[in-house]
């Protein structure tokens, strides 16, 4: 499984943030299992209503793309204004993983 996080917008909306990708088969066993758990958690969340929080300004957007080994791809989007605890946990983990300390 490959999980990629892209972020965009926010107060510094003009800045292009580099995407962050993590492959589960490149992780140690416990870390891979934790990633699987976090991904399963956001998959279990109810789909977000299509309408974005209209009044939020400068909120950052996040797209998590999950590519399964079998070819199935899932895309989950959130923003600061529509963030869930589970989604925040996954972002935090991915940010840490990209620095080598998930």
């Amino acid at each position: 499984m490959k999980v990629t996080l892209t972020r965009y917008g926010g107060l510094a909306g003009g800045i292009s943030w580099p995407a962050r990708s993590v492959k589960s088969d490149a992780l140690p066993g416990p870390a891979a299992a934790e990633l699987e758990h976090l991904v399963a958690a956001i998959r279990s969340e109810a789909p977000l209503e299509a309408k974005r929080e209209d009044r939020a300004r400068d909120s950052m957007g996040y797209t998590v793309t999950i590519e399964e080994d079998g070819g199935r791809t899932t895309v989950v989007k959130r923003s600061d204004a529509t963030m869930s605890q589970k989604f925040a946990s996954l972002i935090q983990w991915l940010d840490g993983a990209s620095k080598g300390s998930p």
Binding site: L11, A56, D58, M60, D80, A81
Partner: peptide, 16 residues
């Protein structure tokens, strides 16, 4: 707000 959160925003009612 959050962990290593790289933003500030107005959510329609409050500043974060």
């Amino acid at each position: 707000y959050g962990v290593r959160f790289t933003n500030a925003f107005w959510n329609g009612e409050e500043m974060i």
